[in-house]
Structures are given as structure tokens and as C-alpha cells.
């Protein structure tokens, strides 16, 4: 699985991940407190310039943003029909600014940096005894490690359907996929504990 991070040496790449995330939170709060279309249009332009400065390329941007762009357009049209021009423009600009700023942060922060920030954010919860902060990184690693196996298992089950002349159906695929995948849990857990990765018991 390829992350949405894009290599580069721009100002945003060099900025500390924590600062970027805090900045994104604050700017999204600010965007929701502004209601006039004109300042929101300026915010959208600023976000667009920020995004363009990363030089992600039009094709890659199209792949990344088309679903989101479509959602924003549909919502803006909906707003136009029910609430008129002013509010539709405000919604369009606000959501565009937000989406582009968030995409810029995602494109300039590595997966590892994000996990470090999440782990740091989870430490107060660990002190309360709710979660173990280090488990988060382990769990993310497990998902990325086992996703290809789940996908190849899916292919095998689908081929088994075809070999027997059955049409693959959601139910007849889901059940073997679930049971075959989850049956591995005991072995994987034993392997993790044998290596003392979670340092318990």
C-alpha cells in the first residue's frame, strides 16, 4: 500500500508535524467561524496556492481529490437550491479551503511521523490506564503487514467460486474470508508475545 506522502523539500515538508496538525486544527476552526463568501474565497485561494506549491501534479491530484471534489460540488449545489447564492459560495469556498489544506498536510507528512504524533498524543490516555500508546504503532504495522494476505485470500476464494461454477456473492465470500483470516490471530498473537514485543507477563 502506497501512502499519500509525496517526497520533497518544501517549507511544509520541513515543518514539524505537530505544528502542521495544530495549524490545521486552528485554521479549520477559523474557517467555520467565518460566514462571508469573500474572506472564505481568499482562504480557498491561499489553500490552493499552498497545495500547488507542493507540485503534486495534475494527474495525481485528480486521483486524490476527485471523490472529495464531487462531494463538495454536490453539497454546494444542494445549498444553492435550498439556501441561495451567498451560502452556496460560502460552503464551496470553506470546504475547498479545508480539503486542500488537509491534503497538503497529508502529502508532506510521512506515515512514521504521524504514528509518532499519535503515540505522543495517546500517552496521557496511557497514564489513565485506557490504552497502551505503543500498541497503536504495532496495530498499524500489523494491518499493513497482513492486508496483502487478506487480498490474496479474497482472490483465492473468488477463484474457488469460479472453479465450481458459482457466482461470487458478498455472503459466500465474506464468511470464509472472515473465518480464514481470524483463525490466524492466535498464531500471530503467540509470535508477538514470544518475542516480548509488548513487554507484558
Amino acid at each position: 500500500m502506497k501512502a499519500l506522502y509525496v517526497e520533497g523539500g518544501t517549507f511544509l515538508h520541513l515543518m514539524s508535524p505537530r505544528l502542521k496538525l495544530i495549524g490545521l486544527c486552528l485554521s479549520s476552526l477559523a474557517l467555520f467561524m467565518i460566514y462571508q463568501p469573500v474572506p472564505l474565497a481568499f482562504a480557498a485561494i491561499a489553500s490552493a496556492m499552498l497545495y500547488l506549491s507542493l507540485r503534486i501534479g495534475w494527474r495525481q491530484s485528480w486521483v486524490r481529490m476527485r471523490m472529495l471534489g464531487l462531494t463538495i460540488l454536490v453539497v454546494a449545489l444542494f445549498t444553492l437550491v435550498f439556501n441561495g447564492w451567498d451560502e452556496a459560495a460560502a460552503v464551496l469556498f470553506r470546504l475547498t479551503a479545508l480539503a486542500l489544506a488537509a491534503a497538503a498536510v497529508t502529502a508532506t507528512t510521512t506515515t512514521g511521523d504521524f504514528i509518532d504524533e499519535l503515540t505522543a498524543a495517546a500517552y496521557p490516555l496511557e497514564r489513565l490506564g485506557l490504552v497502551r500508546a505503543a500498541d497503536l504503532g504495532l496495530a498499524v504495522g500489523l494491518v499493513i503487514r497482513f492486508l496483502p494476505e487478506v487480498l490474496s485470500r479474497y482472490d483465492a476464494i473468488r477463484d474457488a467460486h469460479h472453479a465450481r461454477g458459482f457466482k461470487p456473492k458478498p455472503l459466500t465470500i465474506a464468511v470464509p474470508l472472515l473465518i480464514l483470516t481470524l483463525k490466524n490471530a492466535d498464531e500471530i498473537a503467540a509470535a508477538i508475545d514470544a518475542r516480548g514485543i509488548r513487554r507484558q507477563k
Partner: peptide, 27 residues
């Protein structure tokens, strides 16, 4: 964990969507 994967910029949602922009979407 799925939401964490989305937030850290992996394209794990249907249609290859992912990243913080998804959380900024109206949906």
C-alpha cells in the same frame, strides 16, 4: 484503527481515498 490509517495518509477507503482531507469533507 481504520480511522487512524485514514488520518495518517494511507488510501484505505473505497476508491483509494485517505488523508486528513477526508475528515474535512462534508460527509
Amino acid at each position: 484503527l481504520l480511522l487512524v490509517l485514514v488520518a495518517i495518509g494511507l488510501p484505505v477507503l473505497s476508491g483509494g481515498r485517505g488523508g486528513l482531507a477526508v475528515f474535512a469533507s462534508p460527509t
